[in-house]
Structures are given as structure tokens and as C-alpha cells.
Amino acid sequence: MKENGLLLMVNGQSYEFKIGTGPGEVSPSHTLARTLREDLGLTGTKVGCNKGECGACTVLLEGTPVLSCLTLTVECNGKRVTTIEGLEDPETGELDPVQQSFLESGAFQCGFCTPGMIMTVKALLGDMPAPTELEIKEALSGHYCRCISHYHVLDAVGRAIGKRG
């Protein structure tokens, strides 16, 4: 990649950007959340506090949950990013089991925190075959939900674990 260029692998697709301050270019001060939302139109990643305090903007960077509002896009060169839009099967549109579980448990009210939580749970279940309830709560402890859907989310995670048999 050229010095003033940037390569992102988002949901299995490669995107090249120019680093700069012109239209369509990625400025050094742009966060990953902004690039995903504004430049790639992936608005499923929500920005709640924009300061890493609410968890809404959680995406997977190389498989690890990170806060995309506190991640500079220029520091993601060559990295693999997964967003909520990347969870469903691109061919069939079939939902990821975690998405399916959230749907079945009705694990949301306003739904603004949901994509971030789903990303965290996706990573958690990738790391741990059968997390305990405490481990699930700890993994989700950085996610703010003001409607209080927590109990249904815990139900959804249990359901997702069940789906894996």
C-alpha cells in the first residue's frame, strides 16, 4: 500500500482509501466508526457517546471487540473489520445464530445498542464454548442500554449457546 493510501478489509471486502482531507478521503482524525458509517454506508454501527463509554460502536477488529469511535481509521491499514452487516451469510442472507437469538428473544427495545452487543456476543462465543452467566455479563459490562433489555439479552445469549448444541 502506498504511503498515503489505506487498505481496509471490511466484512470480507477490500476497500482502498486515500489519506487526505479531500472529499471521500480518510483524514487522520477520522475514526473507524465514521469511516464505516460515512464512507462505506455501514450505518449499522451506531455511535452513542462517541467517547468509548457506551459500547454502541463495538466492531470486531481482527476478531476482537473494539470501540470504533476510539479507533483511528489510519491505524487500521491492512486490518480485518467485521460489523453487524457482515454477520449474516452474504449469499443466502441467513442470520448469524447470535442475530437469530436476539431476534427470537426480543432482546432489544429501541435497538440502538443492539448491533454493538451482538458484536460483543459474537466474539465471546467465538472465544468461549460455554461462558457462564457471570462471564456473559462481564463481556457485556461495557454496553449501555437505557431501555433495560439486559434480561432479554442474557436470554438471547443463552439461546445462542443452545443453538450450537
Binding site: T43, G44, I84, Q100
Partner: peptide, 21 residues
Amino acid sequence: RETARKDGLGIVRGREKFIDD
């Protein structure tokens, strides 16, 4: 009876449009 929210699929897929979207 328990029925899925009409917007449920849109929410879990990240497709519902909020004002900043």
C-alpha cells in the same frame, strides 16, 4: 401471544435507519 417485532429483523441486521443514519 409472543410475536416477533415487526422491525426486529431490521434491528438485528443493523438496517433500521436512525436519524444520524
